[in-house]
């Protein structure tokens, strides 16, 4: 018996427990990131500019107004945080009120307008007007609006 033990080949053992732990952590991370990305960019095709003169978005926490293009079933939809608005006068008034409250709390906040490139200026204009009106109601000198676009590779668009 002792001879058998003496000649036994040493085995390579790998402890897989931490690997599995971290793998599951990565899975959870990717699930969370994927859902956040979906909420922020759902259905919006941003305008893209070749050789764009746009600048990087460096505002830490801007107020983000998402404007989704109208579909066959619904009109254009504006999304601010978790609230959804349409382009009716009453809905735009509600949007203005929420923007006013947000600007009163954070007067230096920038307003990012992420409008779908397939929407029309007639859809975007009420959103810009609501932002300007909200700045006025919050007693700010100007509305700090920023039009969001993507920078396309030359020749791709």
């Amino acid at each position: 018996m002792s001879r058998l033990h003496r000649h036994q080949i040493p085995t390579l053992q790998t402890n897989l427990t931490p690997l599995i732990d971290l793998s599951f952590l990565l899975v959870i991370f990717f699930v969370l990131v994927a859902r956040v990305g979906e909420v922020n960019t759902a259905g919006i095709q941003l305008p893209s500019t070749v050789n764009g003169a746009s600048i990087p978005d460096e505002a830490p926490t801007p107020l983000v107004l998402n404007l989704m293009a109208p579909t066959a079933d619904t009109g254009a939809v504006i999304v601010l945080n978790d609230s959804r608005y349409s382009l009716t006068a009453a809905s735009i008034q509600s949007l203005t009120d929420e923007l006013t409250a947000a600007l009163a709390a954070r007067p230096m906040a920038e307003i990012n307008i992420r409008a779908d490139r397939r929407s029309t200026y007639g859809d975007v204009r009420p959103v810009i007007e609501a932002a300007v009106r909200a700045a006025e109601l919050a007693h700010l000198p100007a509305a700090r609006i920023r039009l969001v676009a993507t920078r396309a590779q030359a020749g791709s668009v």
Partner: peptide, 8 residues
Amino acid sequence: EEVFPLEI
């Protein structure tokens, strides 16, 4: 994403 600043 990039932005065009517009102050109104």
